[in-house]
Simulated assay, not measured.
Amino acid sequence: MIATKEQERKTLEKIKQMVDELGENSYLAAAFTGAFELAEQNIENDWGITTQEYIDRAIKADENENRAKKELAAVKAELEGVRSAHRGTTKALEETCERAKRYAYEIDSLKEAMKAAKLEITTLKAKLYDYMTAAS
Rank of each mutant, 00 (worst) to 15 (best):
A77D: 14
G23Q: 04
E63F: 05
T90S: 14
R99W: 00
A74Q: 13
Y131R: 15
A30D: 07
E6R: 11
E13S: 03
D56P: 03
E80S: 14
Q41V: 02
K69N: 15
T33G: 06
E94T: 12
L128P: 02
S109R: 12
Q7Y: 03
E71H: 10
E63D: 09
Y131N: 15
D56H: 02
K125D: 14
I49W: 00
L79S: 11
R83T: 12
E8H: 09
E95L: 14
L28R: 04
A104H: 03
T33M: 06
A126R: 12
Y54R: 14
K111M: 05
N25R: 13
Q52K: 14
K70L: 14
Q17G: 00
A31C: 05
F36H: 08
S26I: 04
L12A: 07
G88M: 08
E40P: 04
E21H: 05
S136K: 14
A135R: 14
A61W: 08
E71M: 12
E94P: 01
A39R: 09
A29I: 00
I121Y: 03
I49Q: 10
R102C: 01
A92M: 13
T133R: 14
L12S: 09
I15G: 02
F36T: 06
A29K: 15
K111N: 10
S26F: 04
A77P: 04
T123M: 05
K91V: 05
A74M: 08
Y131F: 12
L28W: 11
G34Y: 08
E63N: 11
R87H: 05
A117V: 00
G48E: 15
K60P: 01
I43F: 00
E98Y: 04
L128C: 07
R57E: 13
K70W: 07
S26Y: 04
A77W: 03
S136G: 13
S109T: 09
T96M: 09
R102I: 04
A92Y: 08
M18W: 10
Y54E: 13
K111E: 12
R87F: 02
L72S: 11
N25D: 15
E63V: 06
I2K: 06
L128R: 13
M1H: 08
K10V: 08
K14G: 01
T11R: 07
E37N: 09
A117H: 01
Q17E: 10
G88H: 08
K60D: 13
E98K: 15
E120R: 15
M18I: 11
Q7A: 09
A116M: 03
E95Q: 15
Y105R: 09
R57F: 08
E44N: 13
E106Q: 13
I55E: 07
C97V: 13
S136W: 02
A116Q: 11
R9P: 01
D130Y: 05
I55H: 09
E53S: 06
G88W: 03
T89K: 11
K101T: 04
K111I: 12
I107P: 00
Y54G: 03
A135K: 15
A35Y: 10
Q7K: 08
S84I: 01
D108K: 09
A73F: 04
G88I: 02
E65I: 11
M132E: 14
I121S: 01
T122I: 01
Y105M: 01
A30W: 09
G88E: 14
Y131W: 11
E120I: 00
L28Q: 10
A35S: 14
Y103A: 08
I59Q: 11
L110K: 13
R99F: 00
Q52V: 05
E95C: 03
N25I: 02
